[in-house]
């Protein structure tokens, strides 16, 4: 939790997307979203909500950082995050009821997502609003990148479609659909392979 000195924006972007990507660095925050990664559309909506909530919460935490007493900062952060999550939930309920029903309780679970808390604690609490916003935004995007990739693999192998559109080969009779991919174990396997892949690439990068 060392207070970072002013970092150039470019570094914040690279950190969030790749170098410090929350998922394969620490395997954090997958809980709330992994369950909906069997359909690409649900994942995209869920990840967009999460990214926006992360960015705006970080900015709000940062705006309030001079007034917030240290001993209650966790509670204030939780409150701020919950506030934005409820707003997202209400917007979905009012303007996209089908999606709201599909995601069920998972929208609410964004509150306990460790990534948002982590970014608020580690960065937003000691930095000005604008960099905090960028930091939150790109941490969220880095996270979304991996989950959307997982969902593409799962939907394609499990149902032969992407975003509901039938894919050539995979939706024909030639491809025996792997139903297990849409079921929970598929999520574990895909995520494990994804982490394996990313870590191996990183190792190569470090060597060269």
């Amino acid at each position: 939790m060392s207070p970072q000195p002013a970092k150039p924006m470019k570094d914040l972007v690279a950190d969030g997307l790749w170098r410090d990507n929350p998922i394969f660095r620490q395997v954090l925050g997958i809980c709330s979203t992994l369950a909906v990664t069997n359909v690409v559309l649900n994942t995209v909506v869920m990840c967009t909500s999460l990214t926006l909530v992360t960015a705006i919460s970080c900015m709000t935490v940062s705006l309030l950082r001079h007034w917030t007493p240290r001993n209650i900062r966790m509670m204030v952060q939780t409150l701020i995050i919950a506030f934005y999550v409820i707003i997202v939930d209400l917007i979905l309920k009012a303007y996209w009821p089908e999606m709201s029903r599909n995601l069920g309780p998972y929208v609410g679970l964004i509150i306990t997502n460790c990534i948002i808390m982590g970014r608020c604690e580690a960065f937003a609490g000691s930095n000005p609003p604008a960099p905090s916003f960028v930091d939150g935004l790109f941490s969220g995007l880095g996270y979304s990148l991996i989950l959307v990739a997982i969902s593409v693999v799962r939907e394609l192998l499990g149902m032969g479609t992407i975003l509901g559109f039938a894919m050539p080969y995979f939706s024909s009779d030639l491809w025996d659909k792997w139903v297990i991919m849409v079921m929970p174990p598929g999520a574990f396997f895909t995520l494990a392979c994804m982490i394996w892949l990313c870590r191996s690439i990183k190792k190569k990068e470090a060597k060269s």
Binding site: V27, I180, P185, F188, A192, W196, L197, R199, S200
Partner: peptide, 23 residues
Amino acid sequence: VPEGLRGPGITLIIAGMMALAFI
């Protein structure tokens, strides 16, 4: 365990197998 899979990777694979069994 293969190097890149150590730690969280292999944990997730095992969790997947457990999930399979629980089905």
